[in-house]
Amino acid sequence: MGALPPSSHALITAPLRGADEIRDNTAFEAILWALSRPGEIRHLPEPGPRTILLALVDRECRVHADDAVIGELAAWTGATLTPLAGADHVFLSLEPGADIARLNTLKVGSALYPDDGATVVVEARLGRAEGDGQRLSLSGPGIETTREIAVAGLPAGFFALRDRLCRYPLGFDLFIVDGSDVIGLPRSTLIEVL
């Protein structure tokens, strides 16, 4: 071996940040803020649920995706694709008229392990204009008093079903994605349909 410079034990310099790390960190920052302050809109690095999946999912996860492309992406990360009832990460595509009875099998965790409740991502429209979508009043952790939001494009009864399944501390945690916009609705949020 040629003469190498002596190396100090202080062998660490900051490594470069790759594109994946930047994307995952940005997406996580957005959804962490969104879940910590339910109803506040944050921005994902690109439209759709893709960046949420990439920031969270790998071979340790069991994923259900309604959309085949998202499913392929999940499989590419090494995650196991499973039916909805066994999934810890669920990517839903819900038409407004869809039958949502199948969502009754969503994992909600147990009193011993509430963290087994699923993380659910669904695409819908976050209403901005007056009269655009179902108006919801939110309260609970992350909200000083109450916060009003509007969501359009989800099947009727979706929030009633969520209400039935989220028996705190059991429940699932929801992200609603609209383009690059995302809001979080953790199980701790009380949602009143107005």
Binding site: A14, P15, L16, R17, G18, D20, E21, D24, F28, I31, L32, L35, S36, A55, L56, V57, D58, R59, E60, C61, P114, D115, G117, T119, G142, Y168, P169, G171, D173, P186, R187, S188
Partner: peptide
Amino acid sequence: YGFLDASAKRELRRKMLKAVAV
């Protein structure tokens, strides 16, 4: 970057979200 590898960070992210939710 940030010492932890990508899979370690993903596990932490998943758990940090659950911690916020409960």
